[in-house]
Design a protein around this nucleic acid. Structure first.
Lengths: 226, 226, 226, 226
DNA sequence: TATGAATGAGGGTTCATTCAT
DNA sequence: GATGAATGAACCCTCATTCAT
């Protein structure tokens, strides 16, 4: 009778999957906060509520854990992107949705930008080793392609825009003010807060749409790209 | 008589100013390559061809040296910007010049982007401590202001654009593909090389000009910003 | 009745004796390859194809396992020695047989030499604790004693030789070139391979026999020993 | 006046060469006592009265320090050997001197045997990397060669003995009882102490001389070796 | 009998920093 | 002004060992 209670008491300990997950999240947090060299295995272990050897047992070493964290940051992004179905929206609404989603994503998941910056600082060695294309490549490209096609068909958008380049444009515009908010604040005395960013997203949408509606420039006879 | 000779005798070593400069450059290089935590005082000393105690003698400690390097990265940037006199150019030509200068700048001085990323990763503590506004603030803002005014006067540009916001827009668009070139390459298989970036700069100019030429949106009755 | 069936049912796993034996052999291999401190309990478990707790269950701890492995190395040696019946051979043939057996033994069971070296490095603490004389003491001593007696009776050998000392002499001569083969090769550029060792065994027999045939030296009036 | 005392106070600290030497000796002691894996860098630092980083500064890492210690053990041996001038002695006296020197050496410098055993356990990787032949190769070989020649010329010794092989024979006989003293004591109840070893050296000389005086065996027509 | 999950204690190594000259 | 010598404090990682099932 008293024993039956024990069964209920199954805590989260002695559960390999759970431990692994806690480690991964703690690592993502630590690496994104302090960079690759600045991250401490001790802190990760403590935050994950496991002993250090567990980390090595499950992930090998710091380098591998870093790669796993980098991969995880993409996995989480892609999960959010898959829920968006921008391909099904009207072209203009789709672009606006894409912009606000991107901006919101960078703001609400700050570890993503930090991980990308860290990885690029290190020369991209880790991401090159994560062959796992499906985890990393964005499902948005297809959706953007559909939006652009629809827009071009109805004569609303110009027809020479590459989806990847458009994605890079939007990412650029949303990334920079979030990524560099601290230096911008100090250098230009701009208060980069939620309202500022919301307004900024509006302006980005406007600018991008303006460009999509414009006619292909005639100056260069090469295939133009956005 | 004998003293005056000593002054002239400044050799390559035993020259405090020269040592300090070598240290600063070595530090800038090291911090930008490996980040704050990844940078090694040993490597800096070796690269600067001085003994480690010299660094501590001149700069105090790693933290202070980092701040000096961060400041130096701005100083060097500003030096380049001051040579540009975009305020004197025709509005459109000025914008194109500004874009190509910015892009070229990020590409040819990669330590600038790295330093900014590193500093923002750490939360901007260091830059906040560098009160030294003159060293940091961009002289371009004035030039951009002049361009925008001229453009607005001739009816070429809309008149609701804030120079700082325009600067941020251009910086965003140039920064991202350079800063994130390694991850972009892996994720989107885009080869981000010199030709790609040159073409990209063209497109950025087109898009920005398109936006500057457009009429202020009517949707929001607030002051619009770029 | 029912019990007898159980005994027969011994499968490859769930067989305590078999597990124990596998562990012991794995331990012998590991300790002899890497020494006491260099041996890894993990490697032993893996090589024995059991889980680590099994080792602790059966053997207590690393120290005890080491002792068991050391003991086992003697047990295996003694098993080989017991098959020899040198006491029954002619004196000279017996000596030659003993030498070639010893040499072959050291060569074909390299873990024996390694275990002895390891144990002596550590000061012999473990072997002192293995009281178990029967497992350790050599049955050859008796055989050697018989050979020497026979030889002395027929006037072939001198009569002042102690069997243990003769055993030590032969062991010395066979042990060293095998045990120290790597350093000898590097230091003297001698290729210590099978032919070299075979020829060496010949020479050792010659030298030992020469000595056994010689007359006791007169210099010292104490009991002479070999 | 009082200052002049300070000059005298120059202690052994802040002396790189002395520090290096202390580390090397401490390492030789530690490695020979506990083997490669069993040696502790902490203990070495403490015994050498330096901080751990000094070790890494001067020697690189544990592996390199081990190699330096191994090399040092040979250097010390060779130093002793060079003082012997056995080539100048009478053949028989020379052999006796060589034996007693060798035995004494193994007994009084126990780290030598331990280092050799450790190195051979590890497969001789380190010694192979110490190209430094002069430090390692024995100057005795020449002396032994002279002894054998002289002995053969006067008809005292047989003339088919290779100096290296003779050296190995003597080393074998002296090495084993010292190296394996602990196991021998336990297994054969032999008390291997100074008197025992002295007497043993006598016997070894007798046996070796006996063999050198004997006539080359006729059994094999190949070049005979000792 | 058997094992996957977990850890305390320590091992080798590095790093920013200081001392003594 | 300049530096070789030296170190306390961590940091990454591993190992023998135990827990819970």
């Amino acid at each position: 009778m008293t024993h039956s209670l024990k069964i209920i008491k199954k805590g989260p300990k002695r559960d390999a999957t759970a431990s692994k997950r806690r480690i991964l999240h703690a690592a993502l947090n630590e690496f994104s906060r302090y960079g690759h060299a600045g991250a401490r295995m001790d802190s990760i272990a403590e935050a994950a509520d496991v002993s250090k050897p567990m980390i090595y047992n499950y992930f090998g070493d710091k380098e591998e854990l870093y790669k796993a964290a980098l991969r995880e940051s993409y996995v989480q992004i892609r999960r959010g992107e898959q829920e968006l179905q921008i391909g099904d929206l009207e072209p203009e609404a789709g672009i606006r949705k894409l912009v606000s989603f991107t901006m919101n994503h960078f703001v609400s998941k700050p570890w993503f930008i930090s991980m990308l910056n860290t990885e690029n600082l290190l020369g991209g060695d880790a991401i090159r080793q994560i062959g796992d294309a499906d985890a990393i490549q964005s499902p948005l490209i297809d959706g953007i392609g559909k939006l652009l096609e629809k827009g071009a068909e109805t004569g609303l958008f110009r027809d020479d825009i590459d989806p990847v380049e458009l994605y890079i444009t939007i990412a650029s515009l949303c990334y920079f003010p979030v990524s560099n908010q601290h230096t911008l604040r100090s250098v230009f005395k701009v208060a980069i807060d939620a309202p500022w960013l919301a307004q900024r997203a509006e302006m980005i949408s406007d600018m991008v749409l303006q460009y999509l509606r414009s006619s292909p420039s005639l100056k260069t006879d090469q295939t133009r790209k956005l």
